[in-house]
Structure formats: C-alpha cells, structure tokens
C-alpha cells in the first residue's frame, strides 16, 4: 500500500467510516458463509429437524461422484472458451473502434448496449430464438445441414450456451479494452505509427503488451463471470441438459442442494467453490498490487 497516504490522524473517525461495510459483510457474508462451512460437515434432514456430524463424508461423496467430475471439467472448459472467445472478439472490436475516425461514437454506443442485459433475460431471449417451434436459429442451422438439436445433443447445447454467454460478455470486455486503448499516450501511438508500418506488427509489438495488464484483469473478471453469473443464463436456457452436459458447478450446487434438498452436499460444493474463488481472488489481488507498483 502507498504509505504516504496513510497520514491522517487516527482516532475514531476511520472506524466509523469502515464500520457499515464491516457490519454488512459480517452479517450477510461471513455468518452465512460460516454456516455453509459448518453444514458441509453435517448430514442434516432438509427441514433442519435433525443433524449429525459426518466429517468429510460430503466431500468424499463428491469426489467419488463422476457427474461432479464432469461438471467440474465442463465448468473449466466452458469458462475458458467463453473468456477466450469473448476477449478476442472484444479486443478486435475495440482496436477497430479505436482506430476508425468516422462514427466512432455510434459504434461505441451500439457495442456497449448489451452489457446491461441480465443473464436470465439473455437466456430467455435465446430460449425463444433457438426454440424448435418459433425460433429462427435452429431452423437456420438445420437449413445449413447441421441437425442442430440442443435438447438432445450435448455438443449443440454447449455450443448454444457458449454462444449466448459470449454474446452477453463481449460488451464488458469491449468497454475495458477501449478504455485501456485510450489510456495509451498519444505520443506513444504516434511513435508506433512511424516505427511499424504493418498494422498487425504494430498491434503485437506495441499495443498488445500495453494492454496486457487490462487483459489479465479482464481474464479474471471473465472467468468469474463464466463461473457464477452464467447461472441465470443456464437456468433459463438449458437447465444443465442434456445428460447433465451443461451443468456448471454453481448450477450443480443449485440443483443438488436447492432443488434436491441435500444441504450437506450442496454446502460441501459451496465450500469447494469458495476455495476456488479464494484462489482466483488471490491471483487477482497479487496481480493488481503488482500493477499499482510498476
């Protein structure tokens, strides 16, 4: 932390400033999270009438459950693909939007809209657009000779889910990349213009390295998006079907614990997610700290 800033006299004031945040996270984050940890070691009837300590049984069951493993792998592949594709598309659009002179503003507005659409809303819209009865996309794919059938084909369902998740995520990445590009000093850009004639070479030798911090930051944001925020999307679009092939870890917590009323197992799944998230947070945090210092 920047030491010079921490100069103000400390009396009671800073505590008053930080208190609301601390109270809220203690009550609404740590207390429920602690309960989740506690429940992950218990076997409890759904109604909370009886419970017993079972040690790591809930965890052991998960690791022996092949569907949990599959869901784990799907989550990783899904998150990786969604992040990669939406970052790549957004970067391409941002670079172009930054370089064109005409209609730059219009592009910027048009390309950020979708940012505001809720995942659940996107999923519902996609449900209609891919619908067998009234949708246009299933029809179009079929006309192209692809027997597109997301209800029974795991690949088609995953494809559909990734497409919609990318659609929803491109604008966020676009905004950040554009912001990153615009914060590159003009002098540097002009120098690059003179040094490298080729567009792609200039991009890869000058622009991209400068965007690397943004990209890395975005990668973490994107991974967490794919991990967690796609819940509403999955719930309205595939419900994890077919054959559980589009079940992410968060959706599985919801399916087992929430719909299936098995609190012990879902709590164990929550704890595993918490650990994953802690790792992600630690990475992000380290990275951001480094960036501040460079």
């Amino acid at each position: 932390m920047t030491a010079q800033k921490q100069k103000l006299p400390h009396g009671i004031t800073p505590y008053l400033f930080i208190l609301p945040q601390l109270v809220i996270i203690a009550v609404f984050f740590f207390w429920p999270a602690a309960q989740a940890v506690h429940m992950s070691f218990m076997l409890e009837d759904p109604w909370g009438l009886a419970s017993q300590f079972v040690g790591f049984e809930n965890y052991a069951l998960l690791f022996s459950d092949s569907s949990y493993g599959r869901s784990f792998i799907f989550t990783l592949v899904f998150s990786f693909l969604v992040s990669l594709i939406s970052l790549a598309l957004a970067l391409l659009l941002a670079v172009k939007a930054n370089s064109v002179l005409r209609a730059q503003k219009s592009y910027r507005v048009l390309l950020t809209w979708v940012y505001a659409v809720a995942p659940a809303v996107a999923g519902l819209g996609a449900y209609f657009i891919f619908n067998r009865q009234i949708g246009v996309l299933s029809q179009a794919f079929n006309d192209m000779g692809w027997a597109f059938n997301p209800e029974t084909d795991p690949f088609d369902a995953s494809f559909m889910l990734i497409l919609v998740a990318v659609w929803k995520q491109v604008p966020v990445n676009f905004i950040f990349f554009l912001a990153g590009l615009q914060s590159i000093p003009k002098s540097l850009q002009e120098a690059a213009q003179i040094d490298c004639q080729s567009d792609s070479k200039r991009f890869f030798t000058i622009t991209f390295p400068l965007l690397a911090p943004t990209s890395f930051f975005l990668l973490v944001i994107n991974l967490t998006y794919a991990f967690f925020e796609t819940f509403g999307l999955i719930d309205t679009l595939t419900q994890g079907r077919p054959a559980g092939a589009t079940t992410t870890l968060v959706y599985k917590v919801y399916q087992d614990g929430f719909l299936g009323a098995d609190l012990g197992s879902s709590s164990a799944q929550s704890v595993i997610l918490m650990i994953l998230v802690l790792v992600l947070t630690a990475i992000q945090f380290r990275f951001i700290e480094r960036r501040v210092h460079y």
Partner: peptide
C-alpha cells in the same frame, strides 16, 4: 428419499441412452 436427485440421474441416463452413449 432424495428421489428428486434420483430422477435427475434417470433423465441423464435416458439422454445418454438415446444418444447411444
């Protein structure tokens, strides 16, 4: 007991069976 989850498994296996998996 926990038959909701069992039904999930039945659905899942039916998907696989129909896909020839």
């Amino acid at each position: 007991g926990f038959y909701v989850q069992t039904r999930e498994v039945i659905y899942r296996e039916m998907d696989k069976l129909m896909a020839g998996d």
